[in-house]
Design a protein around this nucleic acid. Sequence first.
DNA 1: TCTGGGGTCCTAGGACCC
DNA 2: TCTGGGGTCCTAGGACCC
Length: 413
Amino acid sequence: MFGLVDCNNFYASCHRVWMPEHRTSPVIVLSNNDGCVIARSNEAKALGIKMGTPFFELKEMIIEKKIIVFSSHYALYGDMSERVMNNLARFSPEVEVYSIDECFLKLDGFDDIAKYMTKIRKTIIKNTGIPVSVGAAPTKTLAKLANKLAKKGNGVCLLDTADKIDLALSDYPVEDVWGIGRQYAAKLISLKIDTAEKFRKMPIEWVNKNMSIVGVRMWRELRGESCLNMKTYFEPKKGMCTSRAFGKLTDDYQELQEATSNYASRLAFKLRREKLCTNVLSVRLLTNMFRKDLPQAFPSITIALDHPVNNTPDLIKAALRGLKKIFRKGFKFQKVEVSATGLIPENEVQLNFFKSYNDRNNKVSQVLDNLNSYYGKGTIRLASEGLVKKWDMRRSFLTPDYTNSWDDIIKVK
DNA sequence: TCTGGGGTCCTAGGACCC
DNA sequence: TCTGGGGTCCTAGGACCC
């Protein structure tokens, strides 16, 4: 039996833990740049606010309905997630942290699973302040489905018999099945396959032909045949990307250079943190697709590096070389993406003649990391990153850094 | 004025090998 | 008149996830 614990309205709930006075207000959390809605409390959902709604469209409603607004704060969510996961780890020998707010638990061998699920739920709420829902079923896909039903009901849903599963699937919208996205949903619904039950009744040959092996696995899982195992071990990443919209559009080459340097530097830091090196670096510029009045361009370049690296100077140099090749005048760019593919563990990199050269830049990076970890992010950086971030994100509704800064720690009277 | 960021897996097709 | 068979690796594109 697979259990799935999912935090309710996770980002909104994280803020509420620290500001309990907003426990009954509609709360929304905004994306980077305060661009659009990425999390909503139940009260905000009830007002009809959809995921992804641009913030500027809501300004009147926010005043009228007294909606509480937060800029996103990923360091806070990361810390709250860790608290939830640490608590969950005590409930099963096999846990898989599936995402920042979700965790699979193997629930075999427990006497009364329904009762155990309730206990998990109550413990997490009590110990972390984050409300969660718990679903369980014979496969991961069914457990996801059970979890959604739990959210609609009392927070717990166990699908452990064929009858219960049949009933749950009979009116479950096909587009809500885990693994069915926009494209497949549109295709299935156009063929009048609009419930999980109807999808499950399709012949396997049809599923295989139209939805590939991924669809077949989903189909089998809905029939109770487990195809997706628990992933309880660490797997290194295969690609890494730093991409972020600027606070404003820009056609200034100098600004783009500074932003590209900064993003490459972040990428280098993330690579070092995970003890990975990269062979291949890509740089892409993007204009704002929503601005139909402006010319659009998405130039990109992929650069093969001489040698796998993760040091800041080499990666910035490569990224700037790429930027120079793709930059075009006459476009207002909104975003730059710097990404690494072909990742190799640091300790598996082939030695080469130029090792001593890399050593110097590796040492520089090490010093950067040490200083920035002690004095705070961005304290020391390469000159090419610029002095002032003219392109920096907008974050007007930022809360204190409760879990990461001594200055912001909560005060108890 | 203002519309997120970071990942995974699968498939098809091309270049290459012996 | 007639030109093999069996592989690997890489990339781009398309689907999905939170």
